[in-house]
């Protein structure tokens, strides 16, 4: 069985991101990066499926420049077997083109399952994995909080955190599953894991070689800070609070 895990390099989860003076880009000079937290859950889930006894190869893939190498190595250090990086050669890609590139990798690798995070914490679009499912024509499950492989490894039972509660679905493989926060707790890479990761293969594929014929049709043209909120007032008692809310006709 083969599992393909998609991942993205994103700024550290609590990093303060500043806008460039011109307002059209971000000042990321002093920002540390990591594997997108939701993708880390996807890597962890793949490793757990392997550890549950199935004969599994775990391949991680990202679309991005040289700078993403470190995040692939982090996933290899957690225990993934090998990595693929699609090099966009400086082109800026929208979600559909990223999904297209990942689908091209999926067609080469022919995985039984694609695991992804439900959201990237930078652009927060949450589009790529479901687009992959659409392009591949595979069934999908978003916001997974539990994933169970059938005994014959032909299907999955997935519990998803939806607005109304917990939804259970079954997916025949191949399929695409997106990890939510309560799916698992990702492990830290062990020291031997980190040593081994350095020797694991990382294949680099040029975007052009993958037959990408698309054009980028969605782009970010500017950033703004949130509107400053005027500082609130401190109050000392419950009575004072109720009075303040009454004055605003809120209760």
């Amino acid at each position: 069985m083969k599992l393909l895990v998609t991942l993205k390099r994103t700024p550290q989860r609590d990093a303060r991101i500043r806008i460039s003076e011109a307002g059209d880009s971000l000042d990321l000079d002093n920002v540390q990066f990591e594997v997108n937290p939701f993708d880390e859950l996807a890597v962890e889930e793949a490793l757990r499926i392997r550890e549950a006894g199935a004969e599994v190869e775990v391949v991680v893939v990202t679309v991005g420049g040289e700078e993403c190498q470190q995040q692939l190595i982090s996933a290899l250090a957690m225990g993934a077997d090998r990595a693929v990086r699609v090099e966009p050669s400086g082109q800026s890609l929208d979600s559909l083109r990223v999904a297209g590139a990942l689908v091209a990798v999926a067609r080469r690798e022919e995985p039984d399952l694609v695991l992804a995070g439900k959201l990237a914490v930078d652009d927060e679009c949450g589009q790529v994995p479901a687009m992959m499912a659409g392009l591949l024509g595979w069934p999908q499950a978003n916001q997974a909080s539990s994933v169970e492989l059938s005994e014959d490894a032909s299907s999955l039972r997935v519990v998803c955190e939806v607005d109304a509660g917990l939804e259970t679905v079954t997916l025949a493989l191949p399929a695409v599953v997106m990890a939510d926060l309560r799916l698992n707790e990702p492990r830290y890479a062990s020291l031997p894991g980190i040593m081994k990761a350095k020797k694991k293969p990382v294949e680099v594929l040029a975007l052009d070689e993958l037959g990408d014929a698309g054009s980028t049709r969605s782009r970010v043209t500017g950033f703004r800070a949130l509107e400053e909120k005027s500082p609130g007032v401190r109050i000392d008692t419950a009575e004072e609070l109720v009075r303040a809310l009454e004055e605003r006709k809120l209760v």
């Binding site: 979600s95 679009c125 687009m131 499912a133 659409g134 969605s218």
Partner: peptide, 17 residues
């Protein structure tokens, strides 16, 4: 969140979330 990106892929059109 689940079916709109899938639809975007089926239609081959860009999407804003």
């Amino acid at each position: 969140k689940e079916y709109f990106p899938r639809l975007a892929a089926l239609l081959d059109v860009p999407m804003a979330s």
